[in-house]
Amino acid sequence: MDSNQSGLLHKECFVTIGATAGFEELLIAAVSEDVLNTLADLGFTDLTVQCGTMNEYFRKIKPRDSKGLRITNFDFKARGLENEMKRCQSRNGVSQEGLVVCHAGAGTILDVMRLGLPLVVVPNVSLLDNHQEELAAELERQGYVVKSSVSGLSVAIKAATANSRKSWTTSNPKNRGIAPIVDEVLGHKEEDTKFRLD
């Protein structure tokens, strides 16, 4: 009902904090007045939040005034988050291209980039594991994603939806995984045999 109010197409922002660690600050930021206003201004109709172990907590902080956005939340999806992410894709006559905001988990980032969606990565600085931060920083430097702190989320959302981004799926056209490397290593074996026969 809400989505058709102003005759707009479905436009969804999906926020995911991952399955293992809680990320309270990102949940708070995602429904802050600042972010909700920004999303509403950009024509978003839906905000879906994956809360993991903090689903109960999110229910408590969910604001009464949602700035016209339909806010939904859930804890986990056993089959993964592909369906939620795909709802953010643009489909002719159904939806406009949305946005994904995620913690800096490598698997989640890859899933989003494979779908070609705009992505804001918010590393969880309370985790001691700082290599996630490094991953997000390098991906931003190369133009695949926008990295953000919790406090800068609304600015990052504007940047991610406005700027063009580098396409992940075409980043390495020769990419065939390790298949060619296996061939190469096996190739040595044949050469070694020849070497010995000589």
Partner: peptide
């Protein structure tokens, strides 16, 4: 020595270290 050849691929998540 020609058997059990090892291919190690560092995780994509490791950018700096």
């Amino acid at each position: 020595v020609s058997k059990l050849r090892i291919i190690y691929v560092e995780s994509w998540a490791r950018v700096v270290t």
